[in-house]
Design a protein around this nucleic acid. Structure first.
Lengths: 188, 188
DNA sequence: CTCTTTCCATACGGTGGCGTATGGAAGACT
DNA sequence: AGTCTTCCATACGCCACCGTATGGAAAGAG
């Protein structure tokens, strides 16, 4: 046991950092090895193949994101206050979560769509629960919850493509706007 | 001039088909050549490199999508009726437009973010114009227009990841829901 | 009929990714 | 001390993709 040796955890950690920066496509065996100052020989001693590393990274990601939602659930406050907190969270994490931008598209090809689907479902369920607490019936709350999540991800996509909201409208306002819309009852 | 020869247009057409199926990543020189029954030698006579083909494909895409929006603009009807038409259009094209799913993420890397940004802007502007005609002020209409476009793209992303709306909520309802929400004024 | 231009196929070199083979260093065990 | 297990580096083979080099067929010009 060398003290400077690389356990599987170090590999997963380094790979997770790469995922967080540039998505699953960036978690390449040689690249992660370079980050770690290790070599492929080490990697293939700890892992069967790249897919195993990717699966571990996604497991870590699921854990982190699930804990995050649980934290959100356990907060107190009215639904409106909680949506305000959600706004801060979204805007705050929008910048750093670069890896998630590409995740939805690559998920199927990497065989991790089950994990992604579960995390998505938890997010949708969380927002839906908030909206249900705010007075919407279950089905409408779920539709709106899905819409909020979709819109946030869509904003990321539009920004990743060349689009900018423009001088009159800031990006943060868009998130605020969808949250406001989600709370406005339909009827007249 | 052989009658069975391949002009640049044939290459662009075949490449566009690939883009439409599986995104820009699928427009590979050898693959398109195989589709056409041609070889790389032919390709590199008509094009300087792959980027030139990709640019041509995106130009074609921009043309098609822009014409589409113009068609939409020229239709008559109340804003509500026009949004209903937009709904049909979105749901109808959601299935076939597989290539656009990956476009926003790959745009920067392929150097086509300018085109993508322009098309996005036209779509946002179209929906914003509808909403402004429905009584919203310009800024609010723009925010909501962007939200509608983002939500639709977000739904595609969520579906591409493993997520399904669930047994109680259909995918089509989500599109209907965001359009309805976009038309509901904020005040009480 | 010959020569030139146009168009294209085959073959090659280069890069970057994954996974494997092999040897070796360093501790653990006896 | 000698051996065995653990961990890792270097080197290799393989494949997919891009772009280039080269030779050649087919059609038009004269």
């Amino acid at each position: 046991m060398d003290m400077a040796s690389f356990g599987a955890d170090e590999w997963i950690e380094a790979a997770y950092r790469r995922f967080n920066e540039d998505g699953l496509a960036a978690v390449r065996v040689e690249a992660v090895a370079r980050d770690l100052g290790a070599s492929k020989g080490s990697f293939y001693w700890h892992f069967a193949d790249r897919a195993e590393l990717v699966a571990a990274v996604m497991a870590k990601w699921e854990q982190i994101e699930t804990d995050f939602v649980i934290d959100l659930v356990e907060r107190a406050g009215t639904p409106e206050e909680r949506l305000a907190v959600l706004y801060d969270v979204i805007v705050d994490r929008m910048r750093q979560r670069g890896g998630e931008r590409t995740l939805y598209v690559t998920a199927a090809g990497e065989g991790v769509d089950a994990v992604v689907g579960r995390v998505t479902e938890r997010r949708v369920a969380y927002v839906a629960a908030l909206l249900e607490a705010a007075g919407f019936d279950a089905d409408e709350a779920r539709r709106r919850g899905a819409t909020v999540v979709a819109a946030v991800i869509g904003f990321q996509q539009l920004a990743a493509g060349g689009w900018r909201a423009g001088p009159r409208v800031e990006t943060g306002e868009l998130t605020a706007s969808i949250l406001r819309m989600s709370l406005t009852p339909a009827g007249r």
